[in-house]
Nucleic acid binder design. Structure first.
Length: 720
DNA sequence: GAGCACTGC
């Protein structure tokens, strides 16, 4: 019998064992016993599973829609496309929808998945003559690039025009729109950027904010800015007669599930349209008692579904990569001991850091005689839809990144999801046929969950978004019309950070430097570095380092080859630390012209390196536009570029103590070099880092060796 | 001697 991989005991903070007494600033305790699975004892395992669910008693069927009309398949010609459109639930509502848009300034559309709201709404407006190129077109925002691109190409097809003409999209690095574009899909971040040069959005007569329930920081800011543009355009028409007449701005807020009352109140409207989706009923099974170990429960439940239930793939929601990899091993071990008459199991992993080729494997249908078990993070809740799923197993856990303004540190912790999130996960079982969702928590636990996930704006570092608001002319950021206002501590921290970077003056007004910084699609500290590099003649290196830091990691280390990977990494390592190490990788990558074989052998993440190259290109263009010489270089005198980095990150510095640990200079906290760093276990006098993350310990990431006297030099430099 | 939920400009 094979031995199971030991699971690490991950304990973050033993003082916060009880959820109800925990400090909201601190992550939840994560601690698990070692999971043992006896391969020769299948019966015992499956009978144990039966105890988890009271299947007969607690059966709860949730029927979302009875509209089971078939979607036409195969090659689509014009009439197929029309038939397809007519079959969408929203088609019946089109007259109503158009009338409501004519009547109201703002409407809210609540449409479930498969209702056709994202593709049809803009088309109806055009077809009913509400839009003309003279008045201004329609902008539809999406939280994700892929969604913006695929919606645009779908709609341009239905519209019978070439993509980029009447229907187009605009996302970072890729703009397929023209003067004649009247329906434009864009990422929410892209519309925020457009606000910088067109704060009243005069290019558009309708703005549609799609997927509003996701409440990204960017959509939340757009809510306020779009509402403001609508009011100003209306009032200008009243007051300023000689000024050119502004076309009124219509706002449409769309989402799957949302607190419509809250949105209606915020947007001063009472027009709410509800459109049913195309969803099959999903039966929910709750656990009969709370589960001690969600991974153990996920294993037993998954295997029991496999043994008891007819064919159909299983989707298991887990919080992170580590759990996914452990469960994969356990399921595969278990799978070898299945009776010969049962289907074989194949496992598919799905998380963001996985190379694209492996991600796309989840779309391959299960071969005959097998059942596919997909082990996924939150990525399968919103970003990726997989066909063939009939069963969902939900651990109710996900990882949440939070920013603690008091200590300026981020933390990543496993937390319970919200009810809306759980319902979204459940819906994944009923995309093509009725399904079953196994919740590894009790009905009572469900009732005690938060209704909605806390919006990003209440838990993230606000510095980037506050700088943008200031640049957009919103001086009173505390009084901004937020749908949900962030805490004063978060706001104050952001203002303070921007003041220290000299992006704001002591009155909180944006400075010339701040305006320049806001032009860059970067966090304020990085933008500051680029601007400072001009004087220090190291713009080339500064741009490259900033680009390299724009991806999660330029390395990859597959589970089974970690040692080999770290061995290969050594040849790039610089005594100056991580930033120069990354620069070395970029240099070699370019010598190799991005050769994929070279990347593979050196454990370089090619997808992320390509992104680095694109960011560099964009930053070079932006610098040129702002009159910054982009070819000034410090050559191999890396001290210069590191000093330049200090202009943005001087607060992120720590010195080595006689006790051999590091303490931050500004807040006197104990911090550690992250084990993935080139400077791990290397004792240097002082370090600068770009990120401080609390996981099992407070870890500094992207660490560079500096000298403490550089700090006073930089401080003087910054005062200038 | 650790680990990386997910996005976006």
């Amino acid at each position: 019998m094979k031995t199971n991989r030991k699971r690490k005991h991950r304990s973050i903070n033993n003082d916060n064992k009880h959820t109800n007494q925990k400090d909201p600033d601190e992550p939840e305790l994560i601690s698990r016993k070692n999971l043992k699975l006896d391969n020769n004892n299948n019966d015992k395992q499956s009978s144990k599973t039966k105890d988890i669910f009271n299947m007969d008693k607690k059966r709860n069927s949730q029927k979302q829609s009875s509209d089971n009309s078939k979607i036409s398949k195969g090659k689509k010609n014009g009439s197929d496309l029309i038939k397809f459109r007519k079959d969408l639930p929203i088609w019946q509502e089109r007259n109503n929808l158009v009338q409501e848009v004519k009547k109201s300034e703002t409407i809210i559309i609540m449409g479930e998945m498969g209702s056709g709201k994202s593709t049809q709404t803009p088309q109806f407006l055009v077809e009913f003559g509400l839009i003309s190129s003279k008045k201004g077109g329609i902008a539809i925002t999406q939280p994700r690039r892929v969604a913006a691109i695929s919606l645009a190409s779908r709609v341009s097809q239905e519209f019978g025009t070439q993509l980029g003409q009447k229907v187009g999209y605009s996302v970072r690095f890729d703009d397929k729109s023209s003067h004649s574009t009247i329906i434009k899909y864009l990422t929410d971040g892209m519309l925020l950027r457009e606000l910088l040069s067109d704060s009243l959005l005069l290019k558009y007569s309708v703005v549609i904010l799609d997927e509003a329930h996701e409440r990204t920081m960017r959509t939340d800011i757009l809510f306020g800015m779009v509402k403001r543009a609508q009011e100003i355009r209306k009032n200008k028409n009243k007051i300023d007669q000689e000024d050119k007449n502004y076309e009124p701005l219509k706002i449409i807020v769309m989402s799957a599930t949302l607190d419509t009352e809250k949105f209606a109140k915020y947007f001063n409207t009472s027009t709410i349209l509800k459109i049913s989706g195309r969803q099959f009923p999903v039966t929910i099974n709750y656990a009969s008692e709370p589960q001690q170990d969600y991974l153990d429960a996920a294993l037993t439940t998954t295997m029991q579904i496999h043994i008891d239930q007819p064919k159909g793939d299983i989707l298991v929601f887990l919080p992170g990569q580590e759990d996914i990899e452990i469960l994969e091993k356990l399921i595969n071990e278990y799978g070898t001991s299945l009776p010969p008459d049962k289907l074989k199991v194949i496992t598919c992993l799905l998380f963001a850091a996985l190379p694209t080729e492996q991600q796309t494997k989840v779309f391959d249908p299960a071969p005959p005689g097998t059942r596919k078990i997909i082990l996924a993070t939150n990525i399968a809740e919103t970003s990726i839809t997989i066909r063939g799923v009939r069963y969902v197993v939900d651990t109710a856990k996900c990882k949440i990144r939070k920013f603690n303004p008091r200590i300026g540190m981020e933390s990543l912790s496993i937390e319970n999801i919200s009810q809306n999130s759980a319902d979204q996960r459940m819906g994944r079982a009923g995309r093509e046929a009725p399904g079953i969702c196994h919740r590894l928590f009790t009905k009572d636990e469900y009732n005690r969950m938060e209704k909605d996930t806390e919006p990003e704006i209440k838990r993230c570092n606000l510095a980037p978004i506050i700088l943008l608001l200031k640049a957009l002319g919103i001086d009173d950021v505390l009084g901004f019309d937020y749908l949900d206002a962030p805490s004063r501590t978060l706001l104050k921290r952001a203002l303070e950070q921007l003041f220290i970077l000299k992006a704001l003056d002591s009155q909180g007004k944006i400075t010339e430097l701040g305006r320049k910084m806001a032009e860059f699609p970067l966090e304020p500290a990085y933008a500051k570095v680029l601007i400072a590099s001009q004087e220090m003649s190291c713009t080339r290196e500064a741009i490259e380092i900033v680009s390299l830091l724009s991806v999660e990691s330029i390395f990859f280390s597959p589970q089974d080859q970690r040692e080999h990977a770290s061995e290969m990494k050594k040849k790039f390592v610089s005594p100056f630390g991580d930033l120069i190490t990354y620069l070395n990788v970029l240099r070699s990558y370019e010598v190799q012209k991005g050769n994929s074989e070279w990347c593979y052998q050196n454990f370089i993440n090619r997808r992320n390196m390509k992104h680095v190259i694109e960011v560099r290109k964009q930053l070079i263009q932006l610098c040129i536009r702002m009159g910054i010489q982009t070819n000034s270089s410090c050559g191999n005198e890396y001290e210069i570029v590191l000093k330049c980095m200090l202009c943005g990150f001087f607060r992120n510095s720590a010195t080595l103590q006689p006790t051999n640990n590091y303490k931050t200079i500004f807040s006197n906290q104990n911090v550690n070099v992250h084990p993935s760093s080139a400077l791990f276990n290397k004792k240097v006098e002082a370090v600068m880092y770009t990120e401080l993350v609390l996981t099992t310990k407070p870890y500094m990431k992207n660490v560079s060796a500096i000298q403490s006297n550089w700090l006073s030099d930089t401080a003087l430099n910054i005062q200038k």
